[in-house]
Write a protein that binds this DNA or RNA. Sequence first.
DNA 1: TCCATAATAGGAACACGTTTCACTTCTTCG
DNA 2: CGAAGAAGTGAAACGTGTTCCTATTATGGA
Lengths: 200, 200
Amino acid sequence: MSTAHSLATEELGSTAQRERRKRILDATIDLASQGGFDAVQMRAVADQAEVALGTLYRYFPSKIHLLVSALGREFEKTETALRERQLTGQTPAERVIEVLKLTSRGLQGDPHLTEALTRAFMFADSSVQTEINQVGMFMTSMVTRAMHPGRTEFDDQDVAIARVIGDVWLSALMGWVTGRSTAAETGQQIEVAVRLLLRD
Amino acid sequence: MSTAHSLATEELGSTAQRERRKRILDATIDLASQGGFDAVQMRAVADQAEVALGTLYRYFPSKIHLLVSALGREFEKTETALRERQLTGQTPAERVIEVLKLTSRGLQGDPHLTEALTRAFMFADSSVQTEINQVGMFMTSMVTRAMHPGRTEFDDQDVAIARVIGDVWLSALMGWVTGRSTAAETGQQIEVAVRLLLRD
DNA sequence: TCCATAATAGGAACACGTTTCACTTCTTCG
DNA sequence: CGAAGAAGTGAAACGTGTTCCTATTATGGA
């Protein structure tokens, strides 16, 4: 239970274990990408990753843990990619919107995957706290760094704003994955919130 | 499928049907209140409401529909109660915070119920759109009326702000029901967002 | 190298949401 | 009233997440 479920930290364990873990997460992403949350069936993941069902459960104690861990891995990739990108917006608001649009576009480019990962995130309880916090920190970090490029320390107000933006982002994403709003509406919703929050 | 799942509107149907519907929702609230989302088992609801499982599914096509409908009924009660209450806050921000605190306190007084209803809300897809929209409208209405007591028409900016507040509220509530944050943190989070959004 | 231990495979079994179906009871309307 | 159709009953059955168990295989230290 201890190390196997942590997220972005370096894993302990043998090479074989790291490879199994990777195969499992790859299979998860693949299935999610094809058919969303419902298509990520534990038996199917185990088959595709070529591990036994029991082994899958040893690595990830539930479907939710599995999906949130996969989400963490994807988010980490996104954040790394963003780090290398030069933002063009002239104001904090514009840069934040830029980052969120880039991220959203990435997600909306793979609706099934996004649906699966978001659903898992929303359903996760406190037993998934570690993984959830990782994702939350990626989010906050992305937003604050867009607000003040180059800076590495941020005051409470900035972090508070970033959190609120994260909340709106999650709610909007939820509306989108559940089919209650379109991609355009989602973008609009986030943009409105950011402009309200960063209107100095 | 047509009328049986609508929410706050007056129901068609015979007296017997209205009573069955009420018994079902009562049983749902009761079970949710005792043991949360997991305790609302369709067989248990059917038993306690004294209807057959098939009948339950005739009235509510899924557990999610059932719970979101129950949420709607509870929300309607809350909104009615709030209408009669005189708000004491001197500014829009203070009144909105007052309303949200009252509402949250009501919810947090029954954690299991809140967990069940929030989970259902977050998991609902577009087939539950009608019920979801009802709840969203109650929320927006409560916030805008707290911003401008007495007024009945609200401009786009106000509605946009109310929506953002609703998003934050939902995210914060999600954090709370999933055990990721405490009641105090949840209140804090909402208060920060409201002050940021209504700081004129 | 060999043994103790941990990890994995393979698969049965269970829980609960959901579907289905044959039968019975109620409602409505001519 | 009496028949046709709608609504309800009761129970079986299915799908998928989760648990459990035994036999087999890999690993790491003496």
